[in-house]
């Protein structure tokens, strides 16, 4: 598992660079890199079909969730690269622990892992903000090389942009993975059988669909939209009377969305 984790952390770092710093060729979209990872895992590690469907559905949902989180100006953008990679390593880890996807638990596990992956992406966005603040000092510092005429040294500062951003993403995937490992027993015990939970999944999907429809037709303000899936999830978990972890997760998601909304409003 350590080799797999290291490989996905490396991929996560490289894709994050492609996403923000170099190129923007769209290789770092979840809908592109998760299917490619699924293909590689199927060819070399014989990934079972239900895990394939799980990851592909996860890729579609994540992609649609992040579709309109655009890196415009100083906007607050969740890290979709880390989120997608976390979804893959988390599922591979649970598989190694003996987790089997079946007709009863697929919806619960999908919503649970997607919620965790989305949380990871929002927490990671705060580290991105910190790095961007640090970059201000770094760029300010590099001004002295222009004033002293050391242009080669000024240009060499560029490599720090790559190193810092790569390391940040590499370390983060490791950290989130080990946090998940700490709570893996609880996670496995909460993925209980019960096909009525499929209903939560359909509402979750409907929330995304509504979000996409609203965004594409642009009748409403973009910043108000992600709140619907979170609200629907909270109401449904309360109505269903299921485990406290669900309620905790949904409340956490709700808080994250509220913070995002607040930032969106402040940024105009």
């Amino acid at each position: 598992m350590m080799i797999t984790l290291t490989v996905f952390s490396l991929i996560s770092g490289l894709l994050a660079i492609e996403n923000l710093i170099w190129g923007q060729f769209m290789l770092s979209r979840p809908i592109i890199f998760i299917p490619l990872a699924v293909l590689i895992l199927t060819i070399f590690f014989d990934l079972p079909p239900e895990f394939r469907y799980f990851l592909l559905t996860g890729a579609v949902v994540l992609e649609l969730f992040y579709l309109f989180s655009l890196p415009i100006g100083s906007s607050y953008v969740p890290n979709q690269v880390l989120s997608g990679n976390f979804l893959i390593v988390a599922l591979l880890f649970l598989k190694k622990q003996g987790f089997v996807i079946n007709g009863n638990n697929w919806a619960t596990s999908l919503v649970l892992l997607l919620s965790l992956a989305i949380l990871v992406s929002f927490v990671s966005a705060y580290f991105d903000i910190l790095l961007r603040k640090f970059n201000s000092y770094l760029v300010e510092y590099s001004k002295r090389y222009i004033l002293s005429g050391e242009f080669k040294t000024f240009e060499s500062v560029a490599k720090w942009g790559f190193i810092l951003f790569f390391s940040l993403n590499f370390i983060q995937l490791y950290s989130y993975f080990f946090l998940m490992v700490l709570f893996s027993k609880q996670i496995l015990s909460f993925i209980e059988p019960g096909s009525e939970l499929n209903l939560i999944f359909i509402i979750f999907i409907v929330g995304f669909v509504a979000k996409i429809a609203l965004n594409i037709f642009r009748k409403l303000r973009r910043n108000d939209l992600p709140i619907y899936p979170a609200l629907l999830l909270i109401i449904l978990t309360l109505l269903s009377g299921i485990s406290p972890l669900w309620n905790l997760l949904t409340v956490l998601l709700f808080i994250v969305f509220l913070i995002k909304e607040g930032k969106g409003v402040r940024n105009g």
Partner: peptide, 21 residues
């Protein structure tokens, strides 16, 4: 790599200068 070292204070300034130097 125009977005390299993107910062809140200067935004893409570093990447831009790095490209034009």
């Amino acid at each position: 790599s125009v977005q390299n070292l993107w910062s809140y204070k200067y935004m893409q300034l570093y990447g831009y200068l790095y490209a034009i130097i």
